[in-house]
């Protein structure tokens, strides 16, 4: 009988292990400082970066994308709406909260249409319409050279250029994780992955470069999570308890994509959607998060 043999063997364990378990003083949980409201539980799966010599792809040289100027506070969408637009059934957020970017004519490809519908004016009617937006109303949507439109687009508005990154689908159905990564050309475009605290304020560890491809492979298997109310509460608790991590993907175009992971719940968030990670993710990468402690979350 296996169970009895295991039990007998445990009885014969060196007493040092028992003593260790008796004397252990665990870490204290982070205080519950923060209310997350509707933004609870961001899990982001970070796509691994293929580093230099281990990459099987030729290193491409992309123009660096840098904000020409930070977003103007006055340009914030009223009523707390984030800056986003809809195109081709997909939802896109304006990078850096609507900062203008320096783009050359060569970086813009075909014009795809005009942002004609104001979501803020009539969220009910316009919220899911093609070419609807909460920002840059009247702007022209362009495909970007070197980017799949299913990942990024550009918008030209009043002489400025803005970058938009896909974050979901207008009907709120989840994106396919593998397809999204393929569109983003991950892992080859990722240069480095950092594991940060949930707020992104402190980098806790660097993701091993040699494991990034494997990480992408695992994340690509993530399936849309059907979450119950209890699950949402668990996610919120995990955030306040320091079990949620932000993954910072530094891309070879100078931008950074942020994702969140809660390894203890095996949930990831890609864009606006939540996904269940395969068990193998925890087996392969759980150790990277073990022992990472986060300071108290900043008060909102």
């Amino acid at each position: 009988m296996n169970a009895k043999r295991v039990s007998d063997a445990l009885s014969e364990l060196d007493p040092q292990y028992v003593q260790e378990a008796l004397q252990y003083k665990g870490r204290s949980k982070a205080p519950r400082w923060r209310k997350w409201g509707a933004a609870a539980a961001c899990l982001v799966v970070v796509v691994a970066l293929v580093l230099g010599g281990t990459s099987m792809f030729a290193r491409e040289s992309l123009p660096q994308l840098q904000p020409a100027s930070p977003a103007s506070p006055a340009a914030d969408a009223p009523d707390g709406m984030r800056k986003m637009m809809n195109y081709n059934g997909n939802r896109y957020v304006f990078l850096e909260n609507g900062a203008a970017y320096s783009l050359s004519a060569q970086q813009l490809k075909a014009a795809l249409g005009t942002l004609d519908y104001d979501i803020q004016a009539d969220p009910q009617a316009n919220g899911k319409k093609e070419f609807s937006t909460t920002f840059a109303l009247g702007g022209t949507v362009y495909a970007l050279a070197d980017y799949d439109p299913a990942f990024r687009l550009a918008v030209e508005w009043e002489g400025n250029y803005y970058l938009c990154q896909r974050t979901g689908q207008t009907d709120n159905s989840p994106m396919d994780a593998a397809e999204y990564f393929a569109a983003a050309r991950f892992p080859e475009r990722i240069e480095r992955v950092s594991i940060a605290d949930h707020a992104g304020a402190e980098v806790l560890a660097e993701f091993p470069g040699g494991e990034i491809s494997a990480l992408i492979g695992e994340l690509a298997q993530a399936q849309p999570a059907a979450l119950t109310e209890e699950d949402y509460l668990a996610i919120a608790r995990a955030q306040t308890d320091g079990e949620s991590y932000q993954l910072l993907l530094d891309l070879n175009d100078g931008t950074t994509v942020s994702l969140y992971v809660i390894p203890s719940l095996q949930i990831a968030m890609i864009g606006d959607n939540r996904y269940a990670l395969p068990d193998s993710f925890s087996e392969k990468f759980g150790d990277l998060f073990d022992g990472l402690t986060q300071g108290p979350l900043p008060a909102q």
Binding site: V6, D8, A9, L13, Y17, E20, A21, D290
Partner: peptide, 25 residues
């Protein structure tokens, strides 16, 4: 049992302190 306990101990040594405690508890 004793040989198995020795092997188990070697396995426990591969774990972090926290994981070792979790296993023992």
């Amino acid at each position: 049992a004793r040989e198995f306990a020795r092997i188990l101990g070697a396995f426990l040594d591969t774990l972090s302190l926290e994981n070792r405690v979790i296993f023992l508890r």
